[in-house]
Design a protein around this nucleic acid. Sequence first.
DNA 1: TGGATACCCCCCTATCTAGGGGGATTGATG
DNA 2: CATCAATCCCCCTAGATAGGGGGGTATCCA
Lengths: 216, 216
Amino acid sequence: MAPMIHKILLLEDHRDAQAWLLHALQLAFGPDIHVDTVSLLAESKKYEQENSYDFILVDLNVPDGSGVDLIRQFKVAHPDRYCVVATIFSDKQHLFSALKAGADGYILKDEEREDIAQMLGGILQGNPPISASMAQQMLRYFHANFHDDHQQVIALSDREREVLTCIAQGMSNKACARELSISHHTVSEYIHNVYRKLGIHSRAEATREAIRRGII
Amino acid sequence: MAPMIHKILLLEDHRDAQAWLLHALQLAFGPDIHVDTVSLLAESKKYEQENSYDFILVDLNVPDGSGVDLIRQFKVAHPDRYCVVATIFSDKQHLFSALKAGADGYILKDEEREDIAQMLGGILQGNPPISASMAQQMLRYFHANFHDDHQQVIALSDREREVLTCIAQGMSNKACARELSISHHTVSEYIHNVYRKLGIHSRAEATREAIRRGII
DNA sequence: TGGATACCCCCCTATCTAGGGGGATTGATG
DNA sequence: CATCAATCCCCCTAGATAGGGGGGTATCCA
């Protein structure tokens, strides 16, 4: 990852927040960093293309779009450089769309400036700058699947699992039969068994189950 | 969440690590905590059932099984109490299986004792105790899907997306028609369009696409 | 000897898939 | 203003497929 952070792009449309975040950046990375501050998404994407930033700090709601677009552009071009969100949005939609776009951190602007600076600086030691409540959200994401996961897994036979794998990938019964070198009547029967065991009644549900079980 | 932490269960089979973690717990939560220390999974599960702990600190590899089982048991019984992993395993398999089981934190034992204590204590302020490299793993998990996600998303019309949502959940064309209050012939045409746009040919594939796109 | 598993065959009907039509409504563009 | 493209809605037919029911044989293992 980036060993030093000098050249920084800050996307933030509020004057006050600009100054506030700039100060936090200086606290985090020292006084002689170079920070380009822009207020609009379009502007930021242009700057990003024409310069080579070590680090970008991004607000999500800017007047002409979402900072997520900048994150995406930056991370496609520089997957190994850092990109952190600073926002007031604490909902999981904003969080996860930013993370999916490639954000390496997600800070809420209602924190103390010193805390923000410390979190930002931590990135150089490999410590992702993530506000406590956002880290909780991420944990909850993993906890969410756990109920489904550990309840008694209905056992499928090898053949049934193979058939399920095939049809969940969109194969027809005949294709599945060819694949497994059995008759399509037999395939049909296995599917019947799988449906009965899993309590489902259609291929779409079978696909969902297969994905949920990690079979495909 | 738990306002105070008094009664703690520590599952850890190494003598040295027991003392080390006990000390970290005292640094984090004060000297007058009560800590039951056990070395075996079976023992820990028994203790957990017979007592009411505010907090459990769990090693993953104990001689008679995996600490994940204790986490699961504890979190099923007390979803609102804290459970943190302390381990030497830094791979994502161990991490994610612990998180799925319900872990609220994941600490690597090669950290400084003061850092461990600080992370543990942070839980009372809602700050999940997660070692830096493990937090990075979690981030990478979300980044992983981003390539699929941002490649040009084939646009579906509102109606097409609604229909896709229905059939991806396993509804028949007729059920979908009832749901959306349109004729099943129309449903059939929308499905046809969706198939064409997404380059698929079956309901199973439609379900996969719908899941991949986050529609269901 | 029963039960679970794997494999095969036949039947039926309902549904789906893929074509072919026909319109109505928007919004942009010349 | 026309008109063009996109979107949305409806109808029809025909063949393929799926889902549910029945029947059977063979193996392996408790």
